[in-house]
């Protein structure tokens, strides 16, 4: 476990449902998403889940934050979504030691697509490079944090 490397993966997703969801449905949906993603990471190979978190902001100043730190503990949610929202813009940040970025990208994308499809919805993504915020180019520099003496 001492040589696990951290390759952060971030993406902006747009979750689109065929009909508006209640304020209770969105937290449950995103919690199910992050729980599935954490499980899939653990099954994909030796890894340490640092933090997988998702955030949606609303024009009225509200927010919905969902977060998970292991595959064996349920996600936590904070804030709330308003009622009657059919589309949600979600920032997803996946910080997992030991899994390559392309693996995290595929898991994040596939699980979101499957979950949305189960509700007759869909998820489109905008990768970090096209979002307009600076990238974190030197992820390799963080390998020193994962090399115990």
């Amino acid at each position: 476990m001492s040589d696990l490397v951290l390759e952060p993966y971030a993406v902006q997703q747009r979750w689109q449902m065929p009909a508006p969801l209640s304020g209770r449905d969105w937290p449950a949906l995103l919690a199910a998403y992050l729980a599935s993603l954490a499980r899939a990471c653990s099954e994909a190979g030796p890894c340490v889940i640092g933090h997988i978190k998702a955030l949606a902001l609303f024009p009225d100043g509200g927010y919905l934050r969902v977060s998970v730190v292991s595959s064996t503990h349920p996600p936590t949610t904070d804030g709330q979504a308003p009622d009657g929202v059919a589309e949600l813009a979600v920032t997803l940040n996946v910080l997992v030691y030991g899994l390559a970025r392309d693996v995290l990208q595929k898991l994040s994308s596939d699980i979101a697509a499957d979950l949305a499809a189960a509700h007759a919805g869909r998820v489109t993504v905008k990768d970090a490079a096209s979002v307009g915020q600076p990238l974190f180019p030197n992820v390799g520099e963080h390998t020193h944090h994962s090399h115990p003496n």
Partner: peptide, 16 residues
């Protein structure tokens, strides 16, 4: 933040 898109900073901004 380590991630390519900050989440904590967005949340703190949202909370003024």
């Amino acid at each position: 933040e380590i991630g390519e898109i900050g989440i904590d900073n967005q949340l703190m901004h949202q909370l003024d």
